[in-house]
């Protein structure tokens, strides 16, 4: 078993665009669930809207890359409003049901042949990178150190992603320390109490849904930046992977989603290397492909253990979670 290459891959993946996209999506979920108490199980839908919004505006309408990102943001805002109008007046669990269905509707619309002209249906979209790469301010060549050696273009998508993460963190930090954030946390605890104090609960929940949704869409953009947009990527399981990352780090914390995303992808990449290698060595009585998929089982078990024994996540305040409602 080649431990060196497994660890190298793991470390490299912890700084991949997918990991950075997960940071943004998990931060969005932290706004939804950690601060506002909204059970959004449709993050994959927001991420798909982000990725498709970006790719379609460039490929079909010839927009520059930054305009593509603006289209993604607008798309996420519209999706959040459509989702929020019927559900935010209902109890929290209805939102969960509606969001999971809405995200599937979004994915199936992108996958269907009806919009083939723009979405290329099940084959997905690719080859939209020129505009973004032209904006690359970095010098040509390959640089970095250790496992983090990437080409100029690879660095550009990672650095731009991290820039968006920093921006997102600043926004969430500013919001959550303000009276606006205090109202939001109050709604998480008991929305009737907040309503009785004269706050328009519906408006705050809508604003939170929009902000978290836009962060999720930006996550989708970052993941799509250097690669392709394939509809099968935005399955409900994607939503639950983001949830795992969020709960791992701590739902009501600023840096929890960031740490959670890094750890989640670190563990996933490590298991993706180790398990098939173990199968090849004959240590596991299964094929190496089956061993590779075993990681999803392990992650599921880890999520259950996490929720049962450390609900506050790695960074969460233990005291804050001691009081279970």
């Amino acid at each position: 078993m080649n431990w060196g290459s497994i660890l190298d891959n793991t470390a490299s993946f912890m700084l991949s665009p997918e990991t950075i996209g997960f940071m943004l999506a998990a931060l969005g979920l932290a706004v939804h669930f950690g601060y506002a108490g909204l059970l959004n199980f449709g993050m994959a839908g927001f991420m798909a809207i982000g990725a498709y919004g970006y790719a379609i505006s460039i490929l079909s309408f010839g927009f520059p890359w930054w305009a593509g990102i603006l289209v993604s943001i607008v798309g996420a805002v519209i999706f959040a409003i459509i989702l929020g109008i019927p559900t935010l007046k209902l109890r929290g669990d209805y939102l969960a049901i509606v969001t999971i269905a809405a995200a599937e509707i979004v994915r199936l619309l992108f996958q269907s042949r009806v919009f083939d002209e723009w979405t290329n249906s099940a084959d997905g979209l690719g080859g939209y990178h020129t505009s973004f790469r032209e904006a690359n301010p970095l010098p040509e060549g390959t640089f970095g150190f250790g496992p983090w050696e990437f080409t100029s273009d690879q660095w550009w998508s990672r650095l731009f992603g991290l820039f968006l993460v920093a921006l997102g963190l600043l926004l969430v930090w500013l919001l959550m320390r303000s009276p606006w954030g205090r109202v939001l946390k109050g709604i998480r605890e008991d929305e009737d109490a907040v309503r009785s104090l004269g706050k328009n609960v519906y408006l705050y929940k809508m604003q939170a849904l929009i902000i978290g949704g836009v962060l999720g869409a930006l996550g989708g953009v970052v993941i799509a930046l250097p690669s392709a947009v394939i509809p099968q990527y935005y399955l409900p399981s994607l939503t639950f992977f983001v949830w795992t990352a969020l709960l791992l780090g701590g739902a009501a914390t600023l840096f929890g989603p960031i740490i959670g995303a890094v750890l989640y992808w670190g563990v996933m990449a490590f298991l993706a290397g180790v398990l098939p290698a173990m199968a090849t060595e004959g240590w596991l009585p299964i094929s190496s492909t089956a061993a590779g998929n075993l990681r999803f089982v392990l992650v599921g078990v880890a999520l259950m253990l996490l929720v049962a024994f450390r609900p506050q996540g790695l960074l969460g305040n233990k005291k804050e979670m001691t009081f279970v409602k």
Partner: peptide
């Protein structure tokens, strides 16, 4: 109806209109 995971002072400040 207390706002369980808000501190006492935060709950009070939330009340101001």
């Amino acid at each position: 109806k207390v706002l369980a995971r808000l501190t006492v002072l935060e709950s009070m400040k939330l009340g101001a209109n």
